[in-house]
Simulated assay, not measured.
Amino acid sequence: MNKWDKLACGVEQIGTMEQANLKELEAVIAIARRGTFRAAAIDLGMSTTALSHTISRLEAALGVRLFNRTTRSVSLTDAGRLFVQQVAPSLQDLYAALDSVRSPSGTIRINAAPFAARAIISPLVLQFLRRYPDMNVDIVTEGKMVDIVKDGFDLGVRVAGLVPSDMIALSLGRPQRHAVVGSPKYFEQHGKPIVPPDLLNHRCIRVRLPDGSLFRWRFEKDGETLQIDVRGPITLDEASIVRTAVLESTGVGYTMEQEVLPDIKAGRLVRVLEDWTPPYPGLCLYYPGRRNLSAGIRAFLELAREFSRRAAE
């Protein structure tokens, strides 16, 4: 019997394994996802030594090696890669089916843009944790888009236009808007732009996108659209820092409206070109279309729908 036949036999036997052995399968998935025994052991709440023994037992039971291991690296063998491809979806469905009949518990992993995480943390995430004290929420923020399934996330939060077409999207309510702002001191010294091209004569706070390119400021009015490649003294790779630079009169900033509304109302910042920044579709919570969602995810989605209804009122 070759290694592929042994692997096929091993996979067929999974259905008859005792419940404790499901942890061995979970260990394989964790190592494949995290890339190291150390990181996977932390996720699983066990020691690296115990995890190594767990994998060795499973490999002995299957009769094939799942990982190539050295002192410096770990990688899936061909058999291990096939094993993960076949077992991971079934294991995920199995745990989801078990969770669906229990009260919400466990961990929900969410990937979100930084500003999106700030928008949902208090009204949605913290409310969810108060309602379901046995739940945990793990939020990872990053500007670049990721494959939430491949990277082990349950949910994503992005602007509607960025949600992948193969995902189920749930609107989180109000549309979004950008705002062009500067400090009163800056505009006293340099004047205010009247139309977007005037920004080429101003010191602007530039933002670098995750792919390394510079973000071009986007405007729209009466069917006319413009993208301005602004110039300025500072370039940032995190849009949330723009507010700080603008408050210090460094230049004009282009940021999410909700980031600066309190400053505008308090007179710390002055808004310009407001008629050139119309609303656009807002944030969406999205997730893959699975047959069996865990009780925790179903509860989170239900609360998200409540949040969306309140935000739209």
Rank of each mutant, 00 (worst) to 15 (best):
L94Q: 00
D237Q: 08
C9Y: 09
R109T: 02
I14G: 09
A50S: 15
A8E: 14
R309M: 07
R271N: 03
S183H: 06
R38K: 15
N68K: 01
V11M: 11
R65V: 14
G45T: 06
D154P: 12
R216W: 02
I29Y: 00
S90F: 10
V230H: 05
T107N: 02
V101N: 02
L62D: 07
A40I: 13
K3C: 13
G212A: 00
W4Y: 09
N2R: 05
V137S: 12
R131I: 00
R72W: 12
Y280D: 00
S294I: 13
L76I: 12
E18L: 09
L301Y: 14
L269E: 00
G212L: 01
R81W: 06
V159G: 12
K221F: 06
R305S: 05
D78T: 15
Q13Y: 02
T250M: 06
D138R: 15
D93Q: 13
T36Y: 07
E313D: 11
I110G: 00
D151Q: 15
E259M: 10
D263N: 02
V260A: 01
S183N: 09
P279D: 01
Q86K: 10
L236P: 00
Q92W: 04
A160Y: 05
S240N: 09
V137H: 04
K3P: 10
V207S: 01
P133D: 14
V84K: 12
L22T: 06
K192E: 10
R231P: 08
F115I: 15
P279R: 09
E248R: 08
V137G: 12
L226H: 09
V64D: 01
I108Y: 09
T244D: 15
I148E: 04
L199P: 02
E274Q: 09
R206L: 04
S103V: 15
L261N: 05
L58Q: 07
N21I: 03
A116P: 00
A96D: 05
I110A: 07
L66G: 02
A119V: 04
D5Q: 13
T107Y: 04
G15R: 11
D222N: 13
L200A: 05
M256T: 02
L7T: 03
E302Q: 11
V157W: 06
D99A: 15
L303Y: 10
A179F: 02
V84N: 03
P133G: 07
F300M: 14
A79C: 14
Q127I: 05
K6V: 04
E26H: 08
E259C: 05
Y287R: 10
T54G: 07
V195I: 13
L209Y: 00
A39R: 11
S183F: 00
